[in-house]
């Protein structure tokens, strides 16, 4: 395949020595991996934690979750919040509504214990 240099990792469709993967084989996601001062493209079957996958006709990309979210399904649906935030209706908040309490272990807003 033109453009595929020997340095191509598995999953790359095209790549270069300096930028790593430039495009991926079908169904794979391109993730821009930061390592010190370098940033290279890698092709993955799914995006790493802290990122979510977006599919489109020309390429599938990994995009960062919101800053307060550790793991998300997409930009607006968090699955696990960062420490100090609490999940409520898919969003990470610094406090919980009246009827709920903040659970630090689960990092979620949870129902109050029955008295």
């Amino acid at each position: 395949i033109p453009g595929v240099s020997s340095g191509c990792q598995g999953g790359c469709l095209t790549c270069s020595d300096y930028n790593g993967c430039l495009s991926c084989k079908p169904r794979l996601f391109i993730f821009l991996e930061r390592n010190g001062m370098r940033q290279i493209g890698v092709c993955l079957p799914s995006c790493p934690s802290g990122f979510y996958g977006t599919r489109s006709p020309d390429r599938n990309t990994c995009t960062k979750c919101r800053p307060e979210c550790d793991s998300c399904f997409n930009k607006n649906l968090c699955m696990r919040c960062r420490a100090g935030y609490y999940l409520h209706l898919g969003k990470c908040q610094e406090s919980c509504p009246e009827s709920l309490v903040c659970s630090d272990t689960q990092r979620e807003c949870v129902p109050k214990c029955p008295v």
Binding site: L22, L32, R34, Q39, I40, G41, T63, K64
Partner: peptide
């Protein structure tokens, strides 16, 4: 400043570099 590489695809609207 400190030299930092940016992948060409990192400069698209859909992606945000940290």
């Amino acid at each position: 400043g400190k030299l930092m590489q940016s992948h060409p695809l990192s400069l698209c609207n859909t992606s945000e570099d940290e």
